[in-house]
C-alpha cells in the first residue's frame, strides 16, 4: 500500500513539472495555433541561467532558499527576454505563412538555442548546489521532500493565477479575443501584436520557474535537457486538450501519474512480459486511446478545422 502511495506521490511531482512546462505550450498554442518546439529550450535556459546566478551568489553566504529565489528572479527576466526575441525574430514574420512553416522555424530556433547554450555553458553537466532541504517527510510510509511539496504547490498556484489572469482581467480578455479571431480583435481595439508578445513573455517566465524546479529537484542541468522535457510537456498539453489551461494542468498530472504507475506496475500486470522500459509506450498508448474517443483531448473544446 505505501508503495502505491509513493508511486502516486512520484507521479504528482513529475506531473507538476510537466504541467508547468505544458502551460507554456498551451498558452502559445491557444493564441497562435503554433507548437512552439523551442519552449523546452527556454526551460533549459532558465535552469542554466539560474544556476549561473546561484553559483555567483553561493559564496555570499546568504541562506539557501534566498539564493535560489534570487537565481529564479534572474532566470525569469532572462527567459522572458529570450521568449520575446524568439517571437519577434522568428515567429512574427510567419503569421500568415502556411501552417507548417512556423513549425520548421520552431525546430530551427530550438537547434540554435541549444547550440548557443552549449557554447555558453559548455558540454558538461552542471550540478545544482544543495541549498534546499531534501529531508524526506513520511506520509503513510511514503517519502516526500520539502522541495517536492514546494513544486506541487507552486505549480498549482501559478496555474490558478493564470486562470485568473485569462478569465478575469482586461489583458486576459484581449488574449481570448486574439485567440478567437485576431482580425476582429484588432477592429475592437486590441493590440494583437502586443498581446501575442505578452503571451510569449509570460509563457517563458513560467518556463524559467519550471527550469529552476527541474534543476533543483534532480540537481542537474545540461544544455540538452530541454528536448525530452519539452516533448513530454507537449504530450501532456495535447492529452489535456491543447490550448486549454486546465487541460494542460490535468494532462501534465495525468501523464506523470501514468508514467509512474506504468513503471511501477506494468511488469506485474503483464506477468513480467513487459517491464518499466515500456512506460512511454504505455503513456503514448493512453494518449492515443484518449484521442480516439475525444479527438481534441480531455478538456479541449470541439472545434472546427482551422482554415
Amino acid at each position: 500500500m505505501d508503495i502505491l502511495i509513493q508511486q502516486i506521490i512520484n507521479g504528482l511531482v513529475l506531473g507538476s513539472i510537466y504541467a508547468l512546462v505544458a502551460l507554456g505550450y498551451t498558452m502559445v498554442y491557444g493564441i497562435l495555433g503554433l507548437i512552439n518546439f523551442a519552449h523546452g529550450e527556454v526551460v533549459m535556459i532558465g535552469a542554466l541561467s539560474a544556476l549561473t546566478a546561484i553559483g555567483l551568489l553561493v559564496p555570499s553566504g546568504l541562506p539557501g532558499p534566498v539564493v535560489v529565489l534570487a537565481g529564479l528572479l534572474i532566470a525569469i527576466p532572462v527567459c522572458m527576454a529570450v521568449g520575446f526575441t524568439i517571437e519577434r525574430i522568428a515567429y512574427r514574420p510567419l503569421r500568415n505563412a502556411p501552417r507548417l512553416a512556423p513549425l520548421i522555424t520552431a525546430i530551427g530556433v530550438s537547434i540554435v538555442l541549444q547550440q548557443l547554450a552549449m557554447m555558453g555553458w559548455g558540454r558538461n553537466y552542471h550540478t545544482f548546489p544543495a541549498l534546499l532541504s531534501v529531508t524526506a517527510h513520511k506520509v503513510g510510509g511514503a517519502a516526500i521532500t520539502d522541495l517536492q511539496i514546494i513544486i506541487v504547490l507552486t505549480a498549482a498556484l501559478l496555474m490558478a493565477a493564470l486562470v485568473w489572469l485569462v478569465t478575469r482581467t482586461r489583458l486576459g480578455r484581449a488574449m481570448r479575443a486574439s485567440a478567437e479571431n485576431p482580425a476582429v480583435a484588432r477592429l475592437m481595439g486590441v493590440d494583437v501584436d502586443r498581446v501575442i508578445s505578452f503571451t510569449f513573455v509570460l509563457g517563458s517566465g513560467l518556463a524559467a520557474v519550471a527550469g529552476v524546479m527541474v534543476a533543483a529537484n534532480y540537481s542537474i542541468a545540461h544544455y540538452a535537457m530541454g528536448f525530452m522535457l519539452g516533448l513530454k510537456a507537449f504530450t501532456a498539453a495535447v492529452l489535456g486538450g491543447i490550448g486549454n489551461l486546465g487541460g494542460a494542468m490535468l494532462g501534465g498530472l495525468l501523464l506523470g501519474i501514468i508514467e509512474s504507475l506504468a513503471a511501477g506496475y506494468i511488469g506485474d500486470l503483464t506477468g513480467g512480459f513487459l517491464g518499466s522500459h515500456y512506460k512511454d509506450v504505455f503513456a503514448f498508448f493512453v494518449l492515443i486511446l484518449v484521442l480516439v474517443f475525444r479527438p481534441s483531448g480531455l478538456m479541449g473544446e470541439k472545434v472546427a478545422e482551422r482554415a
Binding site: 522568428a90 520548421i104 530556433v109 540554435v112 541549444q114 547550440q115
Partner: peptide, 21 residues
C-alpha cells in the same frame, strides 16, 4: 561542431522567414 548545427538551425529559420512556402 557547434557552428555546424548552429548554422543549420539558422538556415531553417532564415529560409522559412523569406520563403515560407
Amino acid at each position: 561542431e557547434s557552428l555546424r548545427l548552429l548554422l543549420f538551425g539558422i538556415a531553417l529559420v532564415v529560409v522559412m522567414r523569406w520563403r515560407p512556402a
